[in-house]
Amino acid sequence: MATLSPACPECRTALPADPASLTSLTACPGCRTPLRITVFPAFGRGITLGPKAEKLTGDDEAACFFHATKKAVVPCDRCGRFLCALCDLPLAGEHLCPTCLQAAQQGGNTPAPLDRSRVRWDRIVWLTVLLPILLCWMATPVTGFAAAGIAVWRLAAPPSRIVRSRGRLIAGAIAGVLVGVIGLVGLIAVFSHS
């Protein structure tokens, strides 16, 4: 597949074949809109196609589990099935077959480089701790301990990819217990006084 030719995002006029000349703000030849383009080495290289699966040429060769007529080149690192070059999905140092990859994704055990989303349990815990303090402090004996419970329950859940959410989760659990205890003491004090 050929590389997409660069075009002005405003007027779609084709830009010079060598966009490296637009490294500083330069007017588009079509609409005079200033543009700055940072070109990376991948530009113009096109898309690298993967290898084609080779056909079996003799009886002494192993066949792909999914394509009986194709030569196996590697076993799946999870199920051990032999895979041809087409079925081999190299992922973060592992070689997976399509079935294992699909099973991992459906089972919530997606290989780390492919996970698309994660729940920030630390935020949920901290919201559960802090919101009742602002809205209705009498609920804090329940919500504080509930937050601590959620934190303990989700401690082993995959943390955020970018922040240390596990530390925040532990801090949230401690804060939840503290808030729960303080709320309980306050509640007892209020009721005993009245």
């Binding site: 990376f40 991948a42 935020r123």
Partner: peptide
Amino acid sequence: VMERYRRFDLRDLEMLILHP
């Protein structure tokens, strides 16, 4: 409370266009 991730291999990036 959800984080969604999109990854771009640096070797696949072709260009970054800034348009004031």
